[in-house]
């Protein structure tokens, strides 16, 4: 078609280097040692990330009768259950807030974190047809899967504000800190997801270990209980779990009161960064073999 002839400049502009230097656009060769993350390339594929995340959301609720109601129902029922068992029967303290609100606040970042882990963990295997047939930066797949959970998070956030209205709890100025704790949650989730998704390609054991891991992690995190019931001498160890900081952080930002300390934030940030950096490194090291294994 004539289109092809009239627009050669448009395609030339998309190659990374100007034509006259005659440097290869791409050099294909075995990679050795520390593979660096090509950020520019990642940016060029940003639309893929959005489309893949959108696809994940669409597919998840495609043939469900209740659709988005599931997103509302799941955390709500879980929060009520926890409130009845832990707050009602076991009479655990909730740092002065209504127990349902207290649990829901913890559930919000936790579901984002756990959902991202579960989605991303199996994402590479689910997209094996793409990986073995087309080239694109592989990190996009687990990141897009993790990002798709943000939609559920947004819906849950609205539910939370409705709950706050019902319980007549007013947010304070501390609410401005919420984006920070959201970022912290995402950082931790992406870091762990990179580890899990990459290794899962080689060792399918991780598919089986994943639900178990998420469950154990849930009990090790103050979702249904308050950090204050953890004995003082164990707090430092407890705080190594980054979920402690983002859950208590959410409570602090939304309810205005929680057991959050500066130490928690610092250790969670460090641990999350460590997960993220090492996860990215490991992922880059092993991604070159994905197409041969999948």
């Amino acid at each position: 078609m004539s289109q092809l002839e009239t627009e050669p400049t448009a395609t030339q502009a998309q190659t990374h280097l100007p034509r006259q230097t005659r440097r290869p656009t791409v050099v294909v060769q075995p990679t050795h040692g520390l593979a660096t993350l090509n950020l520019r390339e990642l940016w060029a594929f940003r639309d893929l990330l959005i489309i893949l995340a959108g696809r994940d959301v669409k597919l998840r609720y495609k043939q469900t009768a209740l659709g988005v109601i599931w997103v509302v129902l799941q955390p709500l029922v879980a929060a009520l259950t926890f409130a009845v068992i832990f707050g009602g029967f076991a009479k655990l303290p909730s740092d002065g807030s209504p127990y349902v609100l207290f649990v829901f606040c913890g559930m919000l970042p936790w579901n984002l974190f756990a959902g991202a882990l579960q989605r991303a963990g199996n994402s590479l295997i689910g997209n094996s047809n793409l990986i073995s047939k087309v080239y694109f930066p592989r990190v996009i797949i687990p990141i897009a899967s993790a990002a798709s959970v943000l939609i559920d998070f947004a819906v849950s956030l609205i539910v939370l504000f409705v709950l706050m209205l019902i319980y007549q709890v007013m947010p304070t100025w501390q609410l401005v800190a919420l984006p920070f704790f959201l970022l912290l949650t995402l950082l931790a989730a992406t870091g762990v997801s990179l580890w899990l998704s990459g290794l899962n390609v080689y060792y399918r054991d991780f598919s089986y270990a994943l639900p178990f891991l998420v469950q154990v992690w849930l009990y090790a995190s103050p979702v249904a209980y308050a950090t204050t019931i953890v004995p003082e001498q164990w707090r430092a160890l407890f705080s190594l779990n980054p979920a402690v900081a983002f859950i208590e952080g959410f409570r602090w930002a939304i309810l205005g009161q929680s057991a959050l300390t500066i130490e928690m934030i610092v250790s969670a940030t460090l641990v999350s960064l460590m997960f993220f950096a090492s996860g990215l490194y490991v992922f880059r090291r092993i991604e070159r073999g994905f197409a041969d294994v999948l």
Partner: peptide
């Protein structure tokens, strides 16, 4: 190795 000049 292979050198590739242009978008593939």
């Amino acid at each position: 190795r292979a050198e590739i000049y242009g978008r593939v």
